[in-house]
C-alpha cells in the first residue's frame, strides 16, 4: 500500500480521513501521444495546402489586381490546420496532469492545473469491468451505477462509465481492487 504523505498536497487534500491509498498512477503520455498520430498525419498536409493557398492568394495577381481577398477562404482552413496540429501537444500536456488514485473506499480521477478537477467514485458503485491491454499497458473501464445525482458524477454521467486510461499493469490493479474488496466485505 502507498503512503498518502508521498502524494502531492493537492491530491492528498482530497482524501477522506483514514482513507488508505492503494494505488496511484497516471495515463501513459507517450501512448496517448501516439494515439493522436492519425490526426497529425491528416493535419500536416491539410495545413501545408492551406498555407500554400494563402501564399498564392497574396502573391498572385490577375490583370494587375491583387487577389489577397481570396485569403478570406484560406484563413479559416489554416486556423483549423493549426488547431489540429496542436491536438497532440494538448493531449500530451493534459495527460501529464491527469492522476488516477485507488483507495480502500473510492476511485479518483484528478486533473491538476490552474483549475483542479476531482472526480470521486465510491467503489461499490462501479460494476462490470472491461479491461483492454496491450504490451503491459491498458485501460480499465467500469460501468457506473447507483446515485448518479452526486456532483462529482457529472462527467461520468455523460458516458456512463469511469475510465482509467492507458495505465501500466491494469491487471495488477484489477486484482488489487478485487482482493481489497473481498477483505472489506
Amino acid at each position: 500500500m502507498q503512503e498518502s504523505q508521498f502524494l502531492a498536497p493537492e491530491i492528498r487534500s482530497e482524501l477522506e480521513a483514514n482513507e488508505k491509498v492503494l494505488w496511484v498512477g497516471q495515463p501513459n503520455a507517450m501512448s496517448e501521444l501516439i494515439s493522436t498520430l492519425p490526426i497529425l498525419i491528416f493535419a500536416v498536409p491539410w495545413t501545408a495546402i492551406s498555407v500554400f493557398f494563402l501564399m498564392c492568394a497574396f502573391t498572385t495577381t490577375k490583370q494587375g489586381q491583387n487577389l489577397w481577398f481570396l485569403s478570406i477562404i484560406g484563413v479559416p482552413f489554416t486556423l483549423l490546420g493549426l488547431l489540429l496540429l496542436s491536438v497532440p501537444f494538448y493531449t500530451y500536456f493534459y495527460t501529464t496532469k491527469t492522476h488516477y488514485l485507488a483507495t480502500d473506499r473510492n476511485l479518483y480521477v484528478i486533473q491538476l492545473g490552474k483549475q483542479i478537477s476531482v472526480e470521486k467514485y465510491p467503489r461499490e458503485d462501479l460494476i462490470n469491468l472491461v479491461r483492454t491491454e496491450s504490451g503491459g499497458k491498458g485501460t480499465l473501464r467500469w460501468t457506473l451505477q447507483g446515485n448518479s445525482a452526486r456532483p462529482s458524477y457529472r462527467k461520468a454521467k455523460q458516458t456512463g462509465e469511469v475510465v482509467f486510461k492507458n495505465i501500466a499493469n491494469p491487471r495488477e490493479l484489477e486484482h488489487l481492487l478485487r482482493d481489497t474488496a473481498k477483505k472489506g466485505s
Binding site: N128, V130, T132, E133, S134
Partner: peptide, 13 residues
C-alpha cells in the same frame, strides 16, 4: 496474448 480485451459482467447485473 499481446492485445486482449476482457469484458466481465456479474451475473446479477
Amino acid at each position: 496474448n499481446k492485445n486482449r480485451k476482457v469484458q466481465q459482467y456479474d451475473k446479477k447485473t
